[in-house]
Nucleic acid binder design. Sequence first.
DNA 1: CCTTAGACCTGGAGGC
DNA 2: TGCCTCCAGGTCTAAG
Length: 281
Amino acid sequence: MPEAPEVATVLHTLQESLQDAAIEKVEITHPKLADNMSVSEFAKALRGQHFRGFHRLGKYLVFEMDTLDWVAHLRMEGKLYVADALPEDPKIAKHIHAVFTLSNGQYLLYQDSRKFGRMQLYEKTEDISSLPILAKNGLDVLSPALNGKYLYGKLHKKRIPIKTALLDQSIIAGIGNIYADEILFESGIHPLTPCSQLEEAQLEEIARHTASIMEKAMEAKGTTIRTFSFDQSHAGSYQDQLKVHDRQDAACPVCGSPIEKITVNNRSTYLCPHCQKRKDQ
DNA sequence: CCTTAGACCTGGAGGC
DNA sequence: TGCCTCCAGGTCTAAG
């Protein structure tokens, strides 16, 4: 579900209600939720800790606690939100896999219909990007160091399609299937173009559009095509600004050609065949 | 090095 | 209504 803009939205929403809050009780019902220790150790370690800092790295959330760094990845359907009461609707309640009772009586809930999300706890560190699970990330989508030169260094010898590279979190952290399509459209590059054929100037365009699309999407509080919401009652609105993703057969906003849908990496991929011509074919 | 299929999970949408 | 297939903002692994 969430890419960097949606994760950033969740983070900011949580920070508003959780800053300096204390966890009084932890109940976890999905045994795989914590994957670097048992859920009982995880629950015990978090009890009594306060939320002191809030960070995002790529698609990861990081909560800086009193003596721990708590890392969470929502994967496709994970939702973390604060509620005044536990959900009564059984269709929602059955997907709540963790309940963190706060000292003010509210609850931080983890809901995940597909159970793909994972969390880890680490001893608190000065540099969160050095945490084992985060060290694999490449530059964050908003990093000032993300430029044509960086991408050229990472990509100029690779023959993989550029879209595949944009989804590789060890190159750029935070891009997912929706924004990869939007970035390539704005850059005028066909998603199947082999990385090795791209010049540094084109990679500079990709870097530039990555930053601008991410900023606009964050302002819109993310994209809601299907199920994303950042708490029980709010959804993002960037879907109104999508130019190609999920718009098969609609008119390209630039040239009017019908948007095409293809498969890259087993993922649905949308493009304008006129604005994003392959130069090698 | 690169690609592909499958695994992990579940629900919603659409076809019949 | 039910059953079936396909699809989904992600990532990891095995196999060719």
